[in-house]
Amino acid sequence: MRTRLRRAAAMIARATVLLAMVAAGAGAQSVRDDGRIDRESLQLLRAIVDTATAHGLPAQPLLDKILEGSARNVPGPRIVAVVRQYAAALGEARTALGPSSTAPELDAGAAALRSGVLPAQLIRMRAVRGPGTAATSIVILTDLVSRGITTERASDALERVLRLDTDDSMALALRNAVAQGDAQASMKSLGKFLDDLPDSRKVRKPPETS
């Protein structure tokens, strides 16, 4: 508990210091050498985060992007571009997934959109997973697409699996099967996995009553 509090405090402190540097007038010149961000970029980043939160989007994924860029010694303008695109993706994800979506869902949705998943495919994920329960399935969808499976194929396959699967275990098994090889092998693994699935129409058939 204490460790968690300490970590949370450290994270808030770092993010606050990062964004407060603008207000304090610190970091007047580029400090890329030690992983920090120039003042002009920080001002832009602050404006992006403020605008996003004013629109009800979660700030944490954006702060994480800033911190990651800083840790990777990425130039400030590049971080600004990434964070701006990510903020837009968060908004698009919320439109697709609905206003009751959780922050992890929006974060996963934004990353999915940035990797090529279409908003309509996020809407389909939401149709099979209620608010607060779609983050894992969206992460899996993103992973499948990242491994070379087309968004349509990945979305269709995952939707079919999720309709049979209440706790994401089958979807995780699908992902694990696909993750073992290259893109071509992934497609074969995906096909075999789907072939081995029980017929969803049979599974969803209501029990007969006498």
Binding site: K65, E68, G69, R72, V74, R78, V82, Q85, Y86, A111, A112, R114, S115, G116, V117, V139, I140, T142, D143, V145, S146, R147, R175, N176, A179, Q180
Partner: peptide, 13 residues
């Protein structure tokens, strides 16, 4: 083999 985050915003996944 771990799930990929998808984006390559900073050059690598």
């Amino acid at each position: 083999v771990a799930p990929r985050s998808g984006d390559k915003d900073y050059g690598s996944i």
